[in-house]
Design a protein around this nucleic acid. Structure first.
Lengths: 228, 228
DNA sequence: TAACCTTATAGTTTATTTTACCACAAGTAT
DNA sequence: ATACTTGTGGTAAAATAAACTATAAGGTTA
């Protein structure tokens, strides 16, 4: 075993970390600083240790790229084709994270040369099956945001309805009607009016809203189903 | 390594195999014939071999319980809590299958004492985290059948609209309006009228329909989205 | 300061879909 | 022949979604 003795050498974790800024959806990639894939951009990943759950392992990887905790992170899919990893048989469990890009301070880990955000429609070639994992994850996200209120994790805690609209447009890759989008969201009673306004904008300031997990859970109990 | 040398000993596969018959949804369980869990009912599972992909491994497990091929099988989720397996650290990849219960000839594998269908609302206690996996899978299926036309895999190739209705009622665990259900499905143009009728029923015979994968794919290309 | 941007926000109107029923058809059983 | 069961087509009302219009609320600029 070439890396460490207390890892499961047939199993790794890879993370697709999404961020959003100015109408653009981004994914975080790391540039490998050692090994045969040196210099290549890839999904952040690592081995799973014997004494940590797979969720814990995914969280550890996320923490190693940033200083912010409490991030939306969920398992996505496991990839286990025979030839996906060249050196030996390795199966990888893919996770995806949704982060507020503003609060996300990047720092490369010890084996990484660089960390950078890439627009999701313009990612570089990646080693192994990372491109497959990423694309599969992006289409998964596209589906997911329409059925569960998770998009907020990509925005600041307080956001405007236009930001939310632009987020959905970025993920779904299509234009949406502003007025109808507002109505649909407000009608759900999922968003809380913070009574605050946008600052420093050169036009009429919009109301800031926030998403409240508790309200969502109460709605769920009443049989509410989130749909966009 | 206690079982074999050419397996990955930290990784297993478990299958949740669903079947449907007479308004009831079933799950297939095996009774362990050896080892510390002897006599207990559990999800069919096995180790992954070094020279097979995880999809191939799942198919192998499925084949070992039956003689029918070409079965709907999909990866569902990976479970990797620290204490999920008592003897040592084992992470399991859960798959789920949808089968036509009529064509499914059961036979217990070499290490199994028995194989049996259980009603999903009445499953026995199971070892490890199999109950968690099963319940998580059932709610996943509930969600999935509403967004993808996969339910047909649980029915015979030719089926009536009432059978389809009852299937959905069983999975969603709720009553549906017969007339509206018919209309919704027929309007999709997803079902092909076989021009055949039910045989040997003591009432007006219903039309038999079949699901055509090719038609579905063509509809998909045109932007069709399956929704129940 | 008034005209003019830009974005926010509140309708309105029309089309479409869903829901809750109803009525009759087509068979079998008595 | 009549009753009973399930199949099948339809309608009317209600709810939703889509397309579009109008006006408000700022800041910017001539």
């Amino acid at each position: 075993m070439q890396y460490s003795d207390n890892i499961i050498d047939a199993l790794s974790i890879d993370c697709v970390i999404f961020g959003f800024k100015d109408t653009q959806l981004y994914v975080l990639l790391v540039k490998h600083g050692i090994g045969p894939t040196l210099g290549q951009w890839a999904l952040p990943g690592s081995w799973i240790r014997y004494n940590e759950s797979i969720d814990a392992a995914a969280n550890r990887i996320l923490s190693s790229q940033t200083s912010v905790g409490d991030i939306y992170l969920e398992q996505f899919k496991t990839f286990g084709d025979l030839d996906r990893f060249p050196a030996r048989r390795v199966i990888t469990i893919a996770y995806y994270a949704l982060v507020n890009i503003e609060k996300f301070e990047l720092h490369a880990g010890p084996t990484e040369a660089d960390v950078q955000w890439f627009k999701v429609w313009d990612v570089p070639t990646m080693p192994f099956d990372h491109k497959t994992i990423f694309e599969s994850c992006l289409s998964f996200l596209k589906h997911k945001v329409q059925h569960e209120p998770i998009g907020f994790n990509l925005l600041p805690p307080k956001f405007t309805l236009l930001q939310l609209l632009e987020l959905y447009e970025a993920i779904l890759n299509q234009k949406l009607d502003k007025s109808n989008f507002r109505k649909k969201f407000l009608k759900m009673n999922l968003l809380v009016d913070t009574k605050e306004r946008q600052q420093d904008v050169s036009h009429r300031a919009a109301t800031l809203y926030r998403f409240d997990e508790n309200i969502y859970n109460k709605l769920l109990d009443k049989g509410f189903v989130f749909e966009i």
